[in-house]
Simulated assay, not measured.
Amino acid sequence: MFTELGYLALFAASFLAATILPFSSEAVLSGMLVAGFDPYVSLVVASVGNWLGGMSSYWIGWLGKWHWIEKYLKIPASQIEKVHKKIKGKEGWVAFFTWLPGIGDPIAVVLGLVKSRVIPTAIWMFIGKALRYAVWGYLTLKAMELF
């Protein structure tokens, strides 16, 4: 089904995988490569889709209020402020790790919540996500050579 929709399906899968929805865009990328889609175009489409999904999580965090975190998640403002101080000036390095499964999406939301600088956050988030897809794509292509 995904290969019938081509790059649009890869973009959608990559976008959704960068939200709190559990979804494996890597499996879709591998399927696209096995089906013969262009590896470079696939890498760009997956990276941009996942980056935009990550930036949407960042934006959701940006819209959030600290008192909501205190009220609903029972995390005190002092702890949130500690995280903010640790992140300040290191937004890029923190955003780089938004590619990590399970914790990457909450990282993006927290970066938005603490109002991290947009440009470094966006750039490093893209780099991290693109590198993940590049490695995954490379491993998929190498595995195809073996079989």
Rank of each mutant, 00 (worst) to 15 (best):
W68H: 13
G104A: 02
V83A: 15
H84E: 15
G89N: 06
L29Q: 09
T140S: 15
G64N: 06
K82T: 08
N50H: 04
N50A: 15
G92M: 08
A27H: 05
L29M: 15
Y72E: 14
I119Y: 13
Y7G: 00
M32D: 09
A77R: 14
K86E: 10
A35D: 13
V135N: 03
V135W: 07
K71L: 10
P120M: 09
G128P: 00
V83D: 04
L111P: 12
W124P: 01
A122L: 13
V110R: 00
Y40R: 11
A35V: 02
V110H: 03
G64C: 12
I87D: 13
Q79S: 11
Y72T: 14
D38E: 06
P106S: 03
A35G: 11
G36C: 03
I60Q: 02
L146G: 12
W59M: 12
L139M: 15
A13C: 01
T3L: 01
W136Y: 11
N50K: 04
E4A: 11
L146T: 14
K115C: 05
V114C: 02
V114R: 00
W124N: 13
I87P: 12
K142N: 07
R117S: 09
S14E: 10
A18L: 00
V48T: 04
A130S: 06
L16D: 07
M125P: 02
G102W: 00
V45L: 06
V94R: 00
A143M: 06
Q79K: 15
M1Y: 14
L29C: 10
L63T: 13
E4V: 11
G92Y: 05
L21F: 15
I103P: 05
E4Q: 13
L131T: 13
P106L: 01
K115D: 06
Y133R: 04
W93I: 12
I80C: 01
G53S: 06
L63I: 11
L29V: 12
G49T: 10
K115P: 04
W93S: 09
K82W: 10
A46Y: 04
K129W: 09
Y40D: 06
L139A: 11
F97S: 06
L146I: 14
A77Y: 12
K115T: 02
K90E: 11
G128C: 05
L43I: 00
S116W: 00
M144K: 07
D38G: 03
R132N: 05
E26F: 11
I103N: 10
S116K: 00
V44R: 02
L8R: 12
G89L: 08
K74R: 12
L21V: 14
N50G: 02
M1Q: 10
A12W: 14
P101Y: 03
Y7S: 00
S30E: 04
Y7K: 05
N50P: 03
A134D: 01
S56G: 04
W93C: 03
V118L: 15
A17D: 15
I69G: 10
W66Q: 13
L21Y: 04
A18I: 00
A35N: 11
D105G: 08
I60T: 07
K71I: 09
T19C: 07
R117I: 02
S42H: 01
W93T: 12
M32A: 11
A13G: 05
F23Q: 05
G6F: 07
I119E: 08
K115S: 08
